Simulated assay, not measured.
Amino acid sequence: MEHDYYKEYYELERNHWWFVAREGILSNYIHRLIEQGKLSSKDLKILNVGCGPGRSSEYLSKFGKVTSIEYDEFCCEFASKKTGLEIINGSITELPFEDNSFDLVCAFDVVEHVEDDQLAVKELKRVTKKGAFVLITVPAFMDLWSHHDVINHHFKRYKIKEVNLLFDTINDGNKVFDTYFNSLLFLPIYFFRKVSNFLKLGQKRKGSGSDFEAFKPGVLNRILYKIMYFESSVINRKIRFPFGVSILYNWKKF
Score class of each variant (00 low, 15 high):
Phe181Gly: 02
Leu184Trp: 10
His147Phe: 13
Glu58Gly: 01
Val121Phe: 09
Ser61Asp: 01
Ile34Arg: 03
Cys106Gln: 00
Leu187Glu: 13
Leu60Tyr: 02
Gly24Leu: 09
Val219Thr: 09
Pro53Phe: 13
Gly202His: 07
Ile227Tyr: 11
Lys226Leu: 15
Asn250Met: 12
Pro96Arg: 11
Tyr249Trp: 06
Asp211Phe: 09
Phe74Ser: 05
Glu73Asp: 06
Asn236Met: 07
Asp109Lys: 11
Ser41His: 05
Phe155Pro: 03
Lys129Tyr: 08
Asn164Cys: 14
Pro53Asn: 10
Cys75His: 01
Arg237Pro: 01
Phe186Trp: 13
Phe74His: 05
Pro139Glu: 08
Gly54Pro: 11
Lys122Ala: 07
Ile151Ser: 04
Tyr180Trp: 04
His154Leu: 02
Asp99Ile: 02
Gln203His: 07
Lys129Arg: 15
Gly131Ala: 10
Ser233Thr: 14
Asp103Phe: 03
Thr169Pro: 10
Phe155Ala: 00
Val49Arg: 04
Glu231Asn: 00
Cys76Asn: 03
Glu35Lys: 10
Leu201His: 11
His3Gly: 12
Ile189Asp: 00
Met142Thr: 06
Arg193Glu: 02
Asn171Gln: 12
Leu248Thr: 03
His153Asp: 10
Val20Gly: 01
Lys238His: 03
Ile46Leu: 14
Arg14Met: 07
Gly207Lys: 14
Asn89Pro: 13
Lys45Phe: 12
Ile160Gly: 10
Glu35Cys: 06
Phe212Met: 04
